[in-house]
Amino acid sequence: MKLIGKLTIFLCGTLLIVFANKFPDFGDPHSPAATHLSPYFIEHTMADTSVPNIVTSVLADYRGYDTMFETTVILAAGLACFFLLRLPEEEEKEIYFRHVPTGVTIRIEECGAAPEDSEVFQRIDSQWVPCDIIIRSTSRLLIPFIQIFALYVVAHGHHSPGGGFQGGVVLGAAVILFAISHNLRTTVAKIGEKSAAIMSAAGVFIYAGTGALCLVLGESFLNYGALAPILGTDRVMARSHGILIVEIGVALAVMSVMIWIYYNLSSAGKQDEGL
């Protein structure tokens, strides 16, 4: 296998290097890539969509159809992880409790006889580490700020680097930070798998639904200009607002899929204890 690997690498590498000789230089302003199609986007973004961030306008408007499927890819990954890994909940064989006053760990095999999770009997992971007050407090302090920053990233995608994907990932990371610093059960109790799944489908649905609404209003799919009468603006501003709507959908979908994938991957589908 190693020999085949080395041979393939050698062949591919040589081919790539030979053909890379024909490429334009790095940063050449006269290369076809820089002169054929992209000048249109740079020069017309303000007139067409009124969005100064050209990446955002190309992403969500000119090539918005691609981006819709990009969001769908994320949803497909979430569904795939759920589909492949999730185990039925009653398969829990043994759970661990800690008697807080004495510090004794109790392993319970018949889950029916388990005590309630309370101040005295604390449900713990099978590989228990004492809770770290510094990590917990710091992440509790940090999480609200991370979330506000994420909302800023989503909302400000029109004017600065950012947008739905970036903001959504940061939002998801905030929840995952919570799950890592506390434990998976607390997080699942707050944002259940069901709501994560429904939110991720709803996020993509906001995107595709906006497109379908344009279709219903008699224009082509995802042509946000059609939303002008509903939003009460002219067609160009309607495009700008339409981009914001779909970015919110993307952020919702990405956030909840990140959480959903984390639930399933970190606990191998059991969703009882994570990292």
Partner: peptide
């Protein structure tokens, strides 16, 4: 201004990469 189109395309490719990574790990 630099060419925005490759950046847009790669946003898609990054997302696809993340999704593939997730399924592969599962």
């Amino acid at each position: 201004y630099i060419n925005p189109l490759p950046h847009v395309l790669m946003l898609t490719a990054i997302v696809v990469g993340v999704a593939t990574l997730g399924v592969a790990l599962a």
